[in-house]
Computed example of a mutant assay.
Amino acid sequence: MTMKQVKRVIQSHASKDGDGVKIQRVHGFNDKSFSPFLMIDELKSESPDDYIGGFPPHPHRGIETLTYMLEGHFEHRDHMGNVGQLKSGGAQWMSAGKGVIHSEMPIMTEGGLHGFQMWINLPAEKKRLPAEYHDFQSPEINEYGDESNLLRVISGTLTENGNKLTGPLQDTGVETAIADWRAAAGETRTLGIPEDYQANLYVYRGEVVISGTLVKAGHWVQLSDGDSVTFEAQSEVGLLLLSGVPIHEPVVHYGPFVMNSMEEINQAIHDYQNGVLTD
């Protein structure tokens, strides 16, 4: 095995999106080391004032989104008629393809919220396919280990000691392996990742040593080439592993649209303004 090393650590920054929802964000639309990922938003608050406005109806084209909820309850609605409940421990995947209009609104009116939304790029030939949506409630997400050292695999396949660890989300626009690792202080884990995948991490709780480098909560980690990575929890820790096949194509980003050229972005804006984005 060739162990992945830490290449770069990026601190998340405070931002707002939707109707004033407070988030911590890391983005790398034109950073090839992020690919196929484009951005991660962490939503974390104990105050309803920080999230109650939610994300009213808005468009997307050219990306997939994966939303994962540790704590809280949001409802998804889209132009296709899908209504999905995103509850604690669950996830939802959406491929915007040629166009989707959707909303994500809180059902909860009090209590703590903690979740993530990841933007994943689509290759050019899949940016004009019809939109799709699936949700996965907490019992559908495969778990490996116990409460002191738990790996929840959301998408794709990882390996550990020669065993395959699979998630319920498999048929996506680009191959990914995404997992949530939660562990008590002193616990370790070594995971195998397909060698042709690029891998990044987001630490959302505690402190962890990743292949020898200490990383604290609120930081995005870019990993080097290799086929495995080792985590060592220095405290109670939580992190997301985001790995996938990189897309070697131009990225042009404008608001909710991610395409390969400015001409395609202008077409997306024109289509949305004229009510034909999803046609």
Rank of each mutant, 00 (worst) to 15 (best):
M3N: 11
K7I: 14
V9E: 11
V9I: 15
H13P: 02
H13T: 15
A14W: 01
A14D: 15
D17Q: 02
D19T: 09
I23R: 00
Q24T: 07
S35H: 02
P36Y: 01
F37H: 06
S45I: 01
E46Q: 10
E46R: 04
G53M: 00
H58N: 06
H58G: 07
P59T: 10
H60T: 12
R61M: 13
T65E: 01
T65Y: 00
M69G: 08
H73L: 10
H73A: 13
R77T: 14
D78S: 10
M80R: 14
G81Q: 06
G81E: 04
G84P: 00
Q85P: 08
S88R: 03
Q92Y: 01
W93Y: 15
W93F: 12
M94Q: 13
A96P: 08
K98T: 15
V100D: 12
I101D: 11
I107Q: 14
T109V: 14
G112P: 11
G112E: 12
L113M: 15
L113G: 04
M118I: 14
W119H: 06
W119F: 03
W119T: 03
I120R: 00
I120K: 01
I120V: 10
N121V: 01
P123Y: 03
A124L: 08
A124K: 10
K126P: 07
R128Y: 12
L129R: 10
A131I: 02
H134F: 12
D135R: 04
F136K: 04
Q137M: 13
S138V: 02
I141C: 14
D146N: 15
D146R: 09
S148D: 10
L151T: 06
L151P: 05
R152M: 14
I154Q: 07
I154E: 12
L165F: 07
T166I: 09
T166L: 04
T172G: 08
G173L: 00
E175L: 14
T176I: 09
A177H: 03
D180A: 03
R182W: 03
G186A: 08
T190M: 08
G192K: 01
I193T: 05
I193L: 07
Q198W: 05
A199W: 02
N200W: 00
R205T: 15
E207L: 06
V208P: 03
S211E: 03
T213L: 06
L214R: 13
V215G: 07
K216V: 14
W220A: 14
L223E: 11
F231C: 00
Q234N: 11
S235M: 06
S235F: 04
V237D: 03
L239T: 02
L240P: 01
L240V: 09
L241E: 07
G244L: 06
G244E: 06
G244Q: 06
I247N: 06
E249R: 10
E249M: 13
V251L: 09
V252N: 03
V252D: 08
H253W: 14
F257V: 11
F257K: 01
V258H: 06
S261N: 09
M262P: 08
E263D: 12
E263V: 12
D271M: 00
Y272G: 11
N274W: 01
